[in-house]
Design a protein around this nucleic acid. Structure first.
Lengths: 239, 239
DNA sequence: CAGTGGTCTAGACCACTGA
DNA sequence: CAGTGGTCTAGACCACTGA
């Protein structure tokens, strides 16, 4: 039995992989002019659209720079940005085969302090929803989630049972597409957070602050505090 | 004066943007079947390759799932991974218009401890290069860089003047293309790190551990310790 | 079987660059 | 001006899916 095409990937992928190999061998140091589309067409015996697709994907990956009217240049590889997956804690825990549960310490409506109101695009003093939830993996506290929600975006927020679903999951249903900005820093937990997470007062914590926007409207701001000894983020950079 | 095409982007980009808008309006909830390429060809009056490119890019962005023989489906937007730029500290400081300088506390050859040797793909006890450098922004300590280097990849490493260039910059010249794995966590500095960074013994620090590999060969492992009060990472997620 | 997406072709027109 | 990349077209063949 013959397997047609087994092991042989699509032509555009071959062109792309060939250039990638040469780049990683240092054949074209950063900034060097690489072969033109026409040259690659001749070299590989494929159409220009095929070569173009390979080059376009290399450009999307940050491996080459292309300038109309000039040519294609090897890029500085470290400009490639790395991808970091910040996943829903619930799915992360479940995927490890562990048990996730949550304790809700607060779920109420409050007038928004000035700074917060501004970041949510609301007038100071406007009522916002505020929840404080601790998430456990196999009964070990992993995250303290202090969250404010724009009521206009999720009117039913306070009626949700957050021992059964997470705010993230619920908000995704209400406002399916979104953008987020986040910052990651190390700091000590507040006294209350330390108590809720059952850690010592000065244990270093990984703090992620995330602001979520959907179609220009701020939806929610969350401060996610993780004990440094129990949680880390992993990622990779792969040109 | 007429500006031809001003404001009107390429047809494939229009198709893509149109679908993106509809998705963000919630027209197709996650998992829903979206229009086929043939339908979009009819709707937009463009060729199939044009529609295909728009859809392919949406797929690359994680906004749709495409299954051959079945169709195109709206994806779960939160599966999109966010990009986090971890930049060279030197360029970051210079770009802020500030002054960067470095103090080299250690630069020598050492026998590698077992764990480290394993992570560098070397036999235990093999000689490796070890540097300990503190980086300052306007004379404030921002990062303590504890780095081990595989001598085979950068034989001249110890001869470099690291007050003039950074290990990252130098290693990039020696081994231009690479992959990296990293983890980010919060922990206390060691006693020595606290002293070098001029911080209190228990100040929370953001610790990035990065292992760099080029063409399958480990090049270097670095532990980058940042005082939590002086440094954070920022990123965004943008479906 | 009809419908889907994956890919390629051989040509085309264009904007842009630098000599 | 010749050379470059950016994009589109109208067709093609294919693998795959589910009825």
């Amino acid at each position: 039995m013959v397997f047609p095409d087994r092991g042989a990937s699509a032509p555009y992928a071959q062109v792309k992989q060939h250039l990638k190999d040469q780049l990683s061998r240092g054949l074209w140091p950063p900034g060097t002019l690489m072969p033109s589309e026409a040259q690659l067409v001749a070299q590989f015996g494929v159409s220009r659209m095929t070569v173009n697709r390979g080059l376009r994907e290399l450009q999307a990956e940050g491996l080459v720079d292309r300038v109309q009217g000039v040519g294609t240049f090897a890029a500085q590889p470290w400009r490639a940005t790395s991808t970091l997956t910040i996943r829903d804690l619930h799915s992360e825990i479940v995927e490890r085969g562990h048990r996730h549960n949550a304790k809700v310490y607060l779920a109420r409506e409050e007038p928004a302090p000035a700074t917060l109101a501004q970041r949510l695009g609301l007038a100071a003093g406007t009522a916002v929803f505020h929840t404080l939830i601790v998430h456990f993996e196999n009964d070990v506290a992993l995250q303290c989630e202090d969250r404010y929600v724009n009521p206009a975006c999720a009117p039913g927020y306070l009626q949700v049972d957050f021992t059964q679903t997470t705010p993230t999951q619920y908000l995704l249903e209400v406002a399916p597409h979104w953008e987020a900005q986040y910052s990651i820093e190390a700091s000590a937990a507040t006294a209350r957070e330390a108590r809720l997470l059952a850690i010592e007062r000065h244990e270093p914590c990984l703090v992620v602050v995330r602001r979520t926007v959907s179609r220009g409207v701020p939806i929610t701001i969350a401060r996610l505090v993780h004990p440094g000894s129990r949680y880390n983020l992993q990622g990779e950079l792969r040109p």
